[in-house]
Every structure is written in C-alpha cells, then in structure tokens.
C-alpha cells in the first residue's frame, strides 16, 4: 500500500494533490504489469479502470477492417490513459495494446466513481486534471488532422 501511494504521488498526473486525497484514491488502486503484445482492453468492452503509466509504452489503436489495427497515438511513462470510465455508457472507444513491457497503476472505476460522488471537491479536482489531459490530446489530434507533412 505504501509503494502504491508513492507511485501515485510521484506521477505527474497527481502532482500537487494533497496527501489525504491520495490516501483516499489509493484505496481504489492496484499494481499491474503487462507483457509486450498484451491487449489491455478492447473497443466496446466495459471501461472499469483507468491507468497511470509508470513504465513502458502503450498503443491506442482503432481497428479498421482490411487495414488491421491503426495506431493513432502512443503513450509513455508519466502519462495516463483511459477516460471512458468517466462518461456513460462507460465503454472503451479504442483498443489499448502493449508495445513495450508496461508497469502501471490501475484505478478501479466503480470504486472511484463512488468516492468522487461522495466527495464532490475531489471529484471536481479529478475532472479538472482529466480535462487538461483531454485538451492536450485533442490539440495533438487536431494537429495530426492537418496532415502537415503531406504535399
């Protein structure tokens, strides 16, 4: 439990979060490890977790019939992935696949939703942090959409 708490405190996503909030969140956390090639989740499955990446690399894929998996983004240590747990119907929109041996902290969605509901202040704090991540991703995707390297 103590190492888990330390992992969360050290991760950029939780930077500056008061210790008692971390204590509350750590109750929903568990250590996970995924081997190269492992499928962490697939599009359409229930989103009952999100992940704090500590080590390794994960690809976010979209499956396209005839073309296979198209990777639209890769995520590395220091990043988080998965926000489908925040919004109904709580289903994954993409596949997540391990490219390099990955160590992460998985946060249980059911547990979190319950805690955040009863503590709206912490709920707001978490939403703010997710909003920032989502904005950054959206901006990056917009630049990709411009297809700037094409003629």
């Amino acid at each position: 439990m103590e190492t888990l708490k330390q992992y969360l405190q050290e991760h950029p996503f939780f930077e500056g979060l008061p210790e008692n909030d971390v204590d509350l969140l750590v109750g929903c956390a568990k250590n996970v490890r995924f081997e190269t090639g492992a499928q962490i989740f697939r599009e359409g499955e229930k989103a009952n977790q999100f992940f704090i990446l500590r080590h390794g690399r994960v690809a976010i894929d979209i499956y396209s019939p005839g073309k296979g998996n198209i990777t639209v983004e890769t995520l590395d240590a220091g990043e988080v992935f998965g926000w489908s747990w925040l919004v109904p119907p709580f289903c994954w929109n993409f596949d997540a696949r391990v490219i390099e041996l990955t160590r992460a902290v998985a946060m249980d969605a059911e547990c979190l939703r319950k805690k955040l509901k009863s503590d709206p202040r912490l709920g707001y704090e978490m939403f703010k942090r997710f909003a920032k991540v989502m904005t950054q991703r959206l901006q990056a995707q917009r630049v990709q959409l411009l297809d700037v390297y094409s003629a």
């Binding site: 998996n69 990777t71 639209v72 590395d76 490219i99 990056a140 990709q144």
Partner: peptide, 11 residues
C-alpha cells in the same frame, strides 16, 4: 498514424 508492426511513437 501507423499500422501493426510499428513499435515506436505515434503522435
């Protein structure tokens, strides 16, 4: 964007 065999960064 990349198809299957790419193991480096996408973004």
């Amino acid at each position: 964007r990349a198809a299957g065999s790419w193991h480096s960064n996408v973004g």
